[in-house]
């Protein structure tokens, strides 16, 4: 008589999934950590996130306790013209001013109370830089998420159904690839008031139907012919089930990669539009900081390097944040794209 095999009670399915997910994440991280450029980019992004979301809310409080002496605070509270009632009035990015610095001395160079100086209107540069970091971040990520959601979904259904749907969306993608986006946003910005959210949606939609759809569709075509899709169909899976449970999860790594490149594009567009004064709904932004330095004559005037704190920080910040997302994209490229891995 044969021994009856004893079965252990099966692990719950969610725990197995979680373990698989964790294992996949760990191996991906190991591959990602190998590339120096990806880690550098991630470091810069974390720095900016800390800068904009952690440091910015506590910045006035911090300055009050570190940089301001009690005598200075007292003097600022009793200043003959423009006395302040709270420290937040000094570090407001849009209307802030320091009552201890006479108007004629603005733009004032970096000092104890203003680590990056003030601009010609007396606003603290570091406060402006921090305030716009958080909004640029949100805009970039929101636009990229919308792009990727649209691109993944359209890419999956065009590959799955083919035929008319495919032709229609591919021709539409041709239009969006060649779409003069910035010119269009300029014309649109002159007609309606674009806020941060509206801009993110417009950018997300215009990017989403473009190149990313074509790239994700070609990936989805490769997924579509895999045996497990056939198996899912044979097991009775409907179109909806196959697309959402089997095709889209396999597109996600590539989608995530292209999300990184789209963040760069969104941040760049916002900065450029606000530089030309086409986003009246946005009061503080890196682009506006550069514009106010330029229109005040501090860039093309002969004394640019004496006034470096006016134009250097915003330009360097845009370049650094854009290149950080680009570098993370390049690092992820090596994880997602096996051809590029070191052999």
């Amino acid at each position: 008589m044969q021994a009856v095999p004893t079965f252990k009670p099966a692990e719950p399915i969610w725990r197995v999934r979680l373990q698989l997910f964790w294992r996949g994440l760990k191996s991906s991280w190991a591959m990602f950590a190998e590339s120096k450029i990806g880690l550098t980019g991630l470091g810069i992004i974390i720095f900016f996130a800390f800068f904009g979301f952690v440091l910015w809310p506590i910045y006035p409080w911090l300055m009050e306790h570190i940089a301001w002496t009690p005598e200075e605070l007292e003097a600022a509270r009793n200043a003959p013209y423009g006395a302040i009632s709270s420290i937040y009035q000094v570090y407001d990015p849009v209307v802030g001013y320091d009552p201890l610095i006479p108007g004629i001395e603005n733009p004032s160079p970096p000092s104890r109370r203003h680590p990056l100086g003030t601009n010609q209107f007396g606003r603290d540069i570091l406060a402006q830089l921090m305030a716009s970091t958080s909004s640029e971040f949100m805009l970039g990520v929101l636009a990229a998420v919308i792009t990727v959601v649209i691109g993944t979904f359209i890419g999956a259904i065009t590959a799955y159904y083919g035929g008319f749907v495919d032709t229609f969306f591919m021709r539409l993608a041709d239009v969006f690839i060649l779409f003069p986006l910035v010119s269009f946003l300029i014309v649109l910005g002159s007609m309606i008031e674009l806020t941060l959210i509206k801009l993110a949606f417009v950018l997300g939609i215009l990017y989403g139907f473009g190149q990313i759809t074509v790239i994700l569709k070609s990936q989805a075509l490769a997924v579509k012919v895999k045996p497990y899709i056939e198996a899912a169909k044979v097991a009775g899976g409907g179109h909806f089930h196959v697309i959402f449970r089997h095709i889209i999860p396999n597109l996600l790594p590539l989608s995530f990669l292209y999300m990184m490149f789209n963040v760069t594009g969104a941040i760049f567009s916002e900065a450029a539009l606000s530089f030309f004064g086409l986003l009246p709904g946005i009061k503080v932004s890196w682009g506006i900081m550069i514009d106010s330095a330029h229109s005040g004559g501090y860039i093309l005037g002969g004394r640019s390097f004496q006034n470096w704190w006016l134009w250097m920080p915003p330009g360097v910040a845009i370049t650094l944040l854009c290149s950080a997302f680009y570098l993370v994209g390049r690092g992820l490229d090596e994880v997602v794209n096996p051809r590029l891995r070191k052999r």
Partner: peptide, 22 residues
Amino acid sequence: GVTLFTVFTPWFALLLVWLFAV
């Protein structure tokens, strides 16, 4: 290359104008 690829165009152009023209 990466720096030039991601640099903020109007800002970079202004700096070049300052350097070469001014």
